[in-house]
Amino acid sequence: MNRIQGVLKLQQLRCSIFIALVVLLPSKLLAQKEFYTPKSLLIPLHDQKNQLHLSIGRGGGYDFNLSYAFTDKLALFSAATFDNDTKKRISIIGDRYDVDRHDFVIKGGLGYFTKTENAEFPIIEAYVGTGITKIDNYWYFKGDTDGEVTQARYWSVFGQFNAGKRVSESEYGLGLRFTYSQYIDFSFYDTYSASTKSSYKKLRGLTADPAISAGYNLYGVNINAQVGVGIPLIAPSVERTDTHTAYEGTTEIRTVINSEEKIRLYSFIGRLSLQYKLNFNKKR
C-alpha cells in the first residue's frame, strides 16, 4: 500500500512539473496583440463550512484570489489581477517584439460545492460571477521606436464547473468555464501614423475555457500550477471604424471608413501560485 501511494505521489508531482512548464510556453509561442486576456480559473476545492482559501500567483499578471465557504454548500469569491510589465514575444515568422502592459481585472461571484462518492473526483463545484477588464498595451518590434497602442475595456459574466480531489500532500482538479464578454470600448492606432485611429463597436464573444490544475503541499502551502485555453464558441461580425485626420492649411479634414470584421476571442491560460486553506472549524 505504501509503495502504491508513493507511485501516485510521484505521478502527481510529475504532472505538476509538466503543467508548470506548459504555463511558461505561451509567452514564447503565441503571437497576438493581447486585447483579450482571460485569467485563470478559480478552483479552490472547498469541502467544509468556514473554510478560507487564499491564493497569490502569476498568470497574465500578478493576481490574488480569495474565497470563503460561509455554509457547508455555498462560498463567495473575489479576484484581482494587475499586469504592469513588459512581455517578450515571438511572431509566427520569428520576429521578436515586446508588449508593454498596464492592465487590470477585478471579478467576484458565488459558488456551490458538494462532496460525492466518486473516488477520482470527490469534490464538485459550480461558480457564477462577473468581472471588468481594462487593457492598455503598447507593442513594438525589437529595435524599433514605433509600434501600436491598444486600449480597451470589457465586462464579462461566466459560469464554471470544477471537479477535483484533495489529499494530504497534493490536489488536482479539472475546470470548465463558459464566459460571455462584451467590450465597452476598443480603440487602437500605430505611432507610425497617429493621424489614423481605429475602433471596434460592440465587440462580443462567447468562449469555453477548459483547464487542468495540480498542486503539491509543502509545509502547509500548496504550490499549484494551472494551464488551459480560451476557445471561441461564437464570433459575430463587428463594425470597424477607421478615422483618418489630415490638414490643408488650418482646415481639418476627416475621412471615415466603416467595415466589418470577425474577431475570435481566444487565448492561452496559465498560472503558477501559492495557495493556503484556513479552516475555522474542524470536521466532525
Rank of each mutant, 00 (worst) to 15 (best):
L42I: 12
A246T: 15
G109R: 05
T241P: 03
S187N: 14
N2V: 08
F268A: 15
I257L: 15
G205N: 05
L10E: 02
N65V: 02
L41I: 05
E148S: 13
V227T: 12
A246Q: 13
N50L: 06
L174V: 09
N137M: 04
Q160T: 10
L174N: 09
D136M: 08
N279S: 09
G129Y: 05
Y200R: 07
F268H: 11
T191D: 00
I135Y: 01
G111E: 00
V221Q: 03
G59M: 08
A119E: 08
Y216G: 03
A69V: 07
V157W: 07
I269Y: 01
F158N: 09
G215P: 00
A119R: 12
L45Y: 08
A20F: 04
L74W: 10
F18T: 09
G230C: 06
K107F: 03
R240Q: 15
G129M: 06
G111L: 01
Y36A: 10
S198L: 00
F121C: 06
T145W: 01
Y276I: 09
T196L: 02
L13F: 14
L233I: 15
V128N: 04
N84A: 11
S91L: 00
L76C: 03
G270S: 12
E261N: 15
T86I: 12
G164E: 01
G173T: 09
